[in-house]
Amino acid sequence: MFNPDIIKPENLVYKRTSVLTDNVMHYCPGCGHGTIHRLIAEVIEEMGIQEKAICVAPVGCSVLAYNYFDVDSQGAAHGRAPAIATAIQRLYPDNHTFTYQGDGDLAAIGTAETIHACNRGENIVMIFVNNGIYGMTGGQMAPTTLIGMKTATSPYGRDVALNGHPLKITELLADLPGTYYVTRQSVQNAASVRKAKKAIRQAFENQKAKKGTSFVEVVSNCNSGWKMTPVAANKWMEENMFPFYPLGDMKVDGQKVSK
């Protein structure tokens, strides 16, 4: 039986972060976006930087991210978030401007903006959610779609001769002198969620210390686009995505991590 007497501050072990709004999220059940949003919001709350945080939202599934983060936000044109964040952060150097982008936004249409913001070493935090598919438009091939993976625009599986190779943009960014911290994480279970949160915290701490670009890729699922149950999607991600997109830090404190 529920006992209302136990609701006391000293009994509080966990609460929903106040940096998320009360709006109901539109993400599909099983999708990683909600978890990633929460981790960012928790980090912002724990660091006490809500008044300085500026979110730049992309085009794609997370186009409405600004409805969920209770921070000042801008909705970018497709792929342009790093350019927008560049200006905001340069004009408010003590703020915490961060971008939140998917693979189509960041690694296809916005590749130039991504590479140049990172190469200039803009003091921004970039969160890159890679699920290997265009979710919002209905499951088309993305720049990060794996070879052989079936999508609405690669119905027989991604064929290198026809579609080219999947782009490991995060590895590419780790090679640029402007990036200070580059890491690849995931959020499919409790252990990975804890690691991802630590990485996001590290990114915002770097920004606070004005170290340059911190880039956090989160390999995520798209159970709707992949046409799987949430559980099967996570399993497929572990078996297929992780071997091609290996998890872990690629660059820490401006130094490449040797594997």
Partner: peptide, 19 residues
């Protein structure tokens, strides 16, 4: 700031103006 393209420039304007 010298941007990487006119596309980036105008979006930097968007970011700054929005702020």
């Amino acid at each position: 700031l010298q941007a990487e393209s006119e596309t980036a420039s105008i979006n930097m304007v968007y970011g700054g103006a929005g702020a």
